[in-house]
Design a protein around this nucleic acid. Structure first.
Length: 508
RNA sequence: CGGGGCGUAGCUUAGCUUGGUAGAGCGCCUGGUUUGGGACCAGGAGGUCGCAGGUUCAAAUCCUGUCGCCCCGACCA
């Protein structure tokens, strides 16, 4: 039977959003549930998340944080305490109003009117308020600070338009919440955690990111300063992949986190919060996947290697299967990124081609085939997911085994390199308004082709310019990069004086 | 919430304009031949056509209502 040229249709070029959905489906990562906007994360997708969790959790612990868990429900009044925060989240909250159901007399159920809650409970869209209320009880003295806590949790934000992994109504994330004695300490914490995210993105996810500060317009509701990592994906849009907020004393005042200072004075604590979510799973797909499906960065791939026994005749199984198990056992003794190499032997009685394509679509970094010919020669057939699907090498088995960590690292490096080149090729300095508009305007408005990228341009710092650009072009300031040098220039939009360039892009 | 579109087997869908007992492909099951790149042959299971009401001798098809989903916009990790 004739097959399409690519495992995924449409291709990225033909229809990027649809391609993305097909990749998620073909890789068996997640599916839509019966609840709008909520997804079922399947084992392969959840395995990626677990690997991300494990790595991040280690990094949080290494920087002095502990895990804890706070309630899912937030009293309505808590959320109302911080004005900007309320405004930011009020329109996307799920609210619980009853605690019991009763028969509606028609075979169905309804909330029991008698069981209405005196105060409605909001399902956390984020936990600043409830954690703040808790910290207020914990903190009496400067000796109680800092508090360095992270929680792994689910949150709910009733977004208008969900997209699997990138923006689901319920999503999984971690949220770090810290409280400090001084502003300086809190600011250092904010920056430290952003650096953790940057490192994680680069060294685990093979994502080069821009790091910087959000403009006031893009800031987290209630924050004094929002730092972020921004990744570019293959349709050249930006994805905010992680954020770290310096909250000043805003939430401490709202939640009354006070302590007696070294000078015997009442002071409000300085707090931070920082998070990354299952959006990262969507981000690595959009960044690395190709027209044959997912391409997983080795460090977070649920399996590093899949071994496919090739047994054209049933009697060959007796020779080939033990050899596959033996190779798997040897490989598992190797380590990569500080963890044992993860290997799966696919013994299902299916055609070799069918199995190969399944694993290609799932994005396993390395595929190994072993048949009688390989046993005779003492070699294995090896294919890397970052190369063409017919591009195979035939190393001696022992060499392959001893070199596996190097190979996986090479794959990681090649993904990072590819992503960096894509980003750099579409990150351009723009000087004039006409150029700026042209850069962000598709040639075919009816069905926009992949266009644009990151525009590094001068901005006069005004909210009006930011708003106008957003309204006219759907382009936002992604970040004010830390490494942007101070230089005199003219705002690309208003022509007014500017002292530095910022990064503009369309975003998810 | 505005503007479009769609609900038929696990999935993708044909049939609807012009009413007449539900069709295909993929997937699934069984047997055989296969397996180093998405196999083939034969047989088989699976659908009260989203839901409720109406018109009619007769409704997937026409009418009314209702629920849900998808896409585009406003909103967003």
């Amino acid at each position: 039977m004739s097959q399409p040229q690519t495992a995924i249709t449409p291709t990225r070029e033909q229809d990027f959003p649809e391609w993305y959905q097909q990749v998620v489906r073909a890789a068996d990562l997640a599916e839509n549930s019966d609840v709008r906007g909520c997804m079922v994360i399947k084992p392969w997708g959840y395995g990626i998340w677990e690997n991300m969790q494990r790595a991040l959790d280690g990094m949080f612990k290494a920087t002095g944080h502990k895990n804890a868990y706070f309630p899912l429900f937030i009293p309505l009044s808590y959320l109302a305490k911080e004005a900007a925060h309320v405004e930011g989240f009020a329109k996307e909250c799920a609210v619980v109003t009853h605690h019991r159901l009763e028969s509606d007399g028609k075979g169905g159920l309804r909330p029991a009117p008698a069981a209405q809650l005196a105060e409605p409970l909001v399902i956390r869209p984020t936990s600043e308020t409830i954690i703040g209320a808790t910290y207020a009880k914990w903190v009496q003295s400067y000796r109680d600070l800092p508090i360095l806590i992270n929680q792994w949790a689910n949150v709910v934000r009733w977004e208008m338009r969900p997209r699997v992994f990138l923006r689901t109504t319920e999503f999984l994330w971690q949220e770090g919440h810290t409280a400090h004695e001084t502003e300086k300490e809190a600011r250092e914490e904010t920056m430290q955690m952003l650096r953790v995210y940057e490192t994680f993105a680069r060294d685990w996810l093979a994502l080069p990111v821009f790091t910087g500060e959000k403009s006031a317009g893009e800031r987290f509701p209630g924050a004094v300063q929002t730092l972020c990592i921004e990744a570019m994906v293959q349709d050249r849009k930006a994805i905010q992949a992680g954020t770290s907020h310096f909250l000043g004393q805003n939430f401490a005042k709202a939640s009354d986190i006070k302590f007696i200072s070294r000078e015997n004075k009442h002071e409000h604590a300085w707090t931070t919060s920082w998070g990354v979510s299952t959006r990262l799973v969507g981000t690595i797909l959009m960044a690395h996947a190709d027209d044959d499906g997912a391409v997983l960065p080795p460090r977070v791939a649920p399996e590093h290697i899949v071994i496919i026994p090739i047994t054209p005749k049933p009697e060959m199984r007796d020779a080939v299967l033990p050899a596959c198990d033996a190779l798997a056992a040897e490989l598992r003794k190797q380590t990569f990124g500080g963890e044992p190499v993860r290997v799966h032997v696919d013994k299902r009685d299916l055609g070799g081609g069918v199995k190969s394509w399944e694993w290609i679509k799932k994005g396993v970094p390395v595929r190994v085939e072993i048949g009688m010919r390989d046993l005779e020669k003492g070699s294995v057939a090896v294919a890397r997911r970052d190369r063409g699907h017919k591009d195979k090498t035939f190393p001696a088995t022992a060499d392959f085994t001893s070199g596996i960590a190097g190979l996986l690292q090479e794959i990681h490096d090649s993904l990072l390199d590819r992503a960096t080149k894509l980003r750099d090729a579409h990150t351009v300095k723009i000087e004039t308004k006409d150029e700026f508009i042209a850069f962000f305007t598709a040639k075919n408005p009816a069905k926009p082709e992949i266009h644009g990228g990151f525009a590094v341009a001068h901005w006069d710092g005004s909210a009006e310019v930011e708003t106008e650009i957003k309204e006219q072009l759907k382009v936002t300031i992604r970040c004010i990069p830390f490494d942007a040098p101070l230089e005199d220039g003219k705002c690309v939009w208003s022509g007014r004086p500017s002292v530095r360039r910022v990064v503009f892009a369309k975003s998810y």
